[in-house]
Design a protein around this nucleic acid. Structure first.
Lengths: 178, 178
DNA sequence: GGCTACATGTAATGCGTTACATGATTTC
DNA sequence: GAAATCATGTAACGCATTACATGTAGCC
């Protein structure tokens, strides 16, 4: 009963019916700061949820585009989701490649490290932009709780970028001292 | 070739020989802000690495305590690790239960949400304390790169705590307005 | 002409989690 | 007397990743 694609999909579908494609879109943008997943996780998850009676499929025939399968949540699904919310909050799960590299990569030269920092910064900036864009566009219509969550995401990326910048500066200074 | 227990264990062993138990200790404290893992991942990983010739086992017989298996990295292991460092930096992987709950839990009452925020805050504070403790104790002997990484970890937890506090305040204010 | 968006899936593989299993010693 | 520390492992299960597989429509 931990945070996995199943519950995120269910939560997304509790707002409105969606296709697997749309769910994946959410995974890579609006909610990417707390959950990410690939098609290989989306479609099998949907299939399972359907088997368990948590969601229902409706096929929409389209002529100019591929057909869609739109899923909507059932009462069973809502109950499962409610059960999830009753569990104690799980700790965040983080896996950070940059941090690992900086922590252990002592024998690398500073150029290499600066490169790693640069790569990571770009990644975080890209994500921050997505979230910031959402915030700027929708903050007036967004329910408060979503705004809260978004804020956490924005802060998270911002903090990471700041820390990375600071690290780069420290490395630069050290270089000049030599 | 993504961030997984294998490379973290190898990196740890590149510093000094260690037992599985010690590696697990690192997973839950000093490096927990970028990687976590259980015994169920540590021991099998070590076994695999040994089979691949990346590490070597030496059994230390102890009389008052259980025997230890101390592993040290081999040349092969160092090569594998070097190869890892050459890959492009992977994006951070985050899975956050609180954020998910705040984002979707619109129908919950504010008390429930405040509770979630409180739980999460405690988790982050506990981890922040560990890192802060490391920083205070060792920052003078620590190599610069490790300090950088630690700093990122500290900032991360601090940012999260701040954001959570702010969220709690927003909810409180909203309550009073009613 | 090529890329992006739309749209859905499967198969293989594997990494990791949880739970199980054991047991002495030290500290509160 | 209870709890934490030291110490190592296995087994089952499952979620997720990567790669594979296919095809149209619209835009630049």
């Amino acid at each position: 009963m931990q945070l996995q694609a199943k519950y995120v999909a269910l939560a997304l579908l509790s707002k409105r019916p969606m296709t697997g494609y749309e769910i994946k879109k959410n995974f890579e943008g609006p909610i990417s700061f707390f959950f990410e997943g690939s098609y290989g996780s989306v479609y099998p998850t949907l299939k399972n949820l359907e088997k368990e009676g948590c969601i229902e499929k409706r096929t929409i025939i389209q002529e100019d585009r591929p057909n869609k399968n739109e899923y909507s949540i059932t009462e069973v699904g809502r109950a499962v989701l409610a059960q999830y919310y009753e569990q104690p909050v799980e700790e965040d799960n983080v896996r950070s490649d940059v941090c690992m590299r900086l922590f252990f990569g002592g024998k690398m030269d500073e150029g290499e490290m600066l490169d790693w920092i640069g790569q990571s910064r770009k990644q975080h900036e890209a994500k921050l932009n997505i979230l910031q864009g959402m915030h700027d566009q929708y903050h007036q219509q967004m329910p408060k709780h979503q705004l809260l969550s978004l804020t956490i995401g924005i802060r998270y990326h911002q903090a990471k970028i700041d820390a990375l910048l600071e690290c780069a500066e420290m490395l630069d200074n050290h270089k000049e001292e030599k």
